[in-house]
C-alpha cells in the first residue's frame, strides 16, 4: 500500500491571537508551528498502515519553505518520502487542491490511499480533500475515525451524533481523517536524525484563479470577563459548595 498524506503548516496559538499589521495572518513571531491535529493523526495512520500492510508513505505540504519543518516532523514519525509545493503565502482551497492534484499526477508512484485532515486547523475550508478526489476520479469518505483495509477495499467509520456510519469503498480512495482515530506518537531521537537527512522533492506550483479571496482576518471581540475568586486551596470548599447550591446542583 502506498499512502499519501497532505498536511498544512499552522501556528500553535495559545490563549490569545495577535494578527500581523496587514491583517493577513496570525503574528507568529513568538509561536511555534505544527501540522493540524487531524493531519497529525493522518500521519500516524499512514505510518501504521504501512507498518501493517507494507508499502510506503509520502507526506506533502503546500506552503512556505519553512514548511519543510512539518515535512521533517512527519518523517520523524516514520513517513518515507517528502514533497514540498513551495508558495510564499497561504493559498485558498481551490488553487491548493489544483496544485496538490497536479503534484499527485506528476508522481511515478500511484497511491492506493490519499489521507487529508477533515478540515485544516486554520482555514477550515472543509473541501481540499474532496476537490482532489473529484479531480482524480476517486471516491472520498470524510470525517474518518476508524479505517481498515482488506483486499483492495477499505472500510471507514465515521462518527455522527446518531452513532457510527460505516462506509466501504474500493481503492484507490481519499479519506479525510479526524483526531481521535489514533494517538499520534512522539518522534524518537533516531526518527529525528533520520528525518534530517531526507531528500525533499520540491515543486513550484501555479496558483491560477483563487475563487475565495481573503480580504483580512479579524479577531472576534472577547467576551467581557469578571472572575470571582472563591478562595485559595482546600479552604475554598465551603464557598464552592455554596456556589453549587446557588446553581441548584447539590
Amino acid at each position: 500500500m502506498d499512502i499519501l498524506v497532505c498536511i498544512k503548516r499552522v501556528p500553535v496559538t495559545g490563549a490569545k491571537v495577535v494578527l500581523t499589521a496587514d491583517e493577513q495572518a496570525i503574528d507568529a513571531s513568538y509561536l511555534s508551528f505544527a501540522p493540524g491535529p487531524h493531519e497529525e493523526c493522518a500521519i500516524e495512520e499512514a505510518v501504521q498502515i504501512v507498518k501493517k500492510h507494507g508499502g510506503s508513505s509520502t507526506a506533502l505540504t503546500l506552503g512556505p519553505d519553512a514548511a519543510v519543518e512539518q515535512l521533517r516532523y512527519a518523517a520523524s514519525m516514520g513517513v518515507d518520502d517528502l514533497i514540498l509545493l513551495e508558495t510564499d503565502e497561504e493559498w485558498p482551497p481551490m488553487p491548493t487542491a489544483r496544485a496538490i492534484t497536479a503534484a499527485i499526477q506528476a508522481q511515478e508512484k500511484k497511491f492506493d490511499a490519499l489521507l487529508f485532515g477533515n478540515e485544516s486547523a486554520d482555514a477550515g475550508g472543509y473541501q481540499v480533500g474532496i476537490r482532489v478526489a473529484h479531480a482524480l476520479g476517486m471516491p472520498v469518505v470524510t470525517g474518518i475515525k476508524k479505517l481498515e483495509f482488506e483486499a483492495g477495499t477499505a472500510v471507514a467509520h465515521r462518527q455522527t451524533p446518531a452513532g457510527w456510519e460505516i462506509y466501504e469503498v474500493p481503492l484507490p480512495a481519499v479519506f479525510t481523517i479526524k483526531e481521535g482515530i489514533n494517538v499520534p506518537r512522539y518522534p524518537s531521537i533516531p526518527g529525528k536524525l533520520k528525518a534530517k537527512k531526507k531528500v525533499i522533492q520540491r515543486i513550484a506550483p501555479e496558483e491560477g484563479d483563487v475563487g475565495l479571496e481573503k480580504v483580512r482576518l479579524v479577531v472576534p471581540e472577547a467576551e467581557a470577563s469578571d472572575v470571582t475568586i472563591l478562595g485559595h486551596g482546600a479552604a475554598a470548599a465551603p464557598q464552592m459548595v455554596e456556589l453549587l447550591g446557588e446553581l441548584g446542583l447539590v
Binding site: 472577547a222 467576551e223 470577563s225 469578571d226 472572575v227 470571582t228 475568586i229 472563591l230 478562595g231 485559595h232 486551596g233 482546600a234 479552604a235 475554598a236 470548599a237 465551603p238 464557598q239 464552592m240 459548595v241 456556589l243 453549587l244 447539590v250
Partner: peptide, 22 residues
C-alpha cells in the same frame, strides 16, 4: 481570568476538600 469563578490552588487538594464538603 476568563472564568466566572475560580479557586487558586492544587486541584488534588481542592477537589477532595470539595467532595468532603458535599
Amino acid at each position: 481570568t476568563k472564568a466566572d469563578y475560580a479557586v487558586i490552588g492544587d486541584l488534588h487538594e481542592v477537589i477532595p476538600a470539595l467532595m468532603a464538603e458535599i
